[in-house]
Design a protein around this nucleic acid. Sequence first.
DNA 1: CGCCAGGACGCCC
DNA 2: GGGCGTCATGGC
Length: 273
Amino acid sequence: MDYSIKGNDIIVSEPDFDLDETLDCGQAFRWKKIDSDYKITYQGRFLNDDLTVSQTDNGNFIFHNTSESDFLNKWVDYFDFNTNYSELKKAFSEDETLSKACSFAGGIRLLRQNSWECLISFIISQNNNIPRIKGIIDRLCDNYNSLFPEPQQLSQETPDSLSYLRSGFRAKYICDASQKVSSGETDLAAIAEMPIDQARTELKKIKGVGPKVAECVLLFGMYRTDAFPIDVWIKRVLAEYYPNGFPDFASQYAGIAQQYLFHYIRNISRSCE
DNA sequence: CGCCAGGACGCCC
DNA sequence: GGGCGTCATGGC
């Protein structure tokens, strides 16, 4: 990853990065694609840090109105720029299906998101579709001046007071998660450091957090790349391409492989409709 | 109208 | 420990 400063913007050159694939692939829900003079532009927040980022025709990225220190201290980490995805994909290409998935959507990166935001977001995601997940999270943040509410703030809500979210049966789960996190009964920072099976057990003590949501929180909110969320799409991938199990060589970065496979199978299915 | 969505819970056996 | 109905809501 190379970068340069141009006025108030940071210009970034990074080949293994595509904004659509990374910000609109179902790992994060608060990025909005907006029309602009650039090829692709997204606006969004990482918790409460604003960013407008564009991808131009020549493949470069523009981090708009971003200081060098914010870029280095926040966004380099968030977009995982210190990880070499070329090497990862090279290793993945040993496997035929994974190789296809990487060449199909090789610009996906695993975002290093906030664990609290991920916990609430993926509780909302259960038995739900991406447009509606985004809508619920939008309504939630709109209620807090466009910021993602802190555990302390959300813990004061009840399923009734959250009815404006129209999140259905998930509201009571949001409340339980908020109360456990704000009281310290659930310590997300500690869970992030635990052996993965212990971390899973700890997360699943929250009502509405089962195997899939726990795995998503570990992968997307705690950068546990060995976490492997299995949803309806990945079930199809496993049944169709890996009847004898997922290849061992990729297990340490199975979660990142999962991202390529998820994007691949969803778009293959879509094009067959 | 019915079906499905990046599932989990409660109850059954 | 596995199987199954149920849970809100909205897009299609």
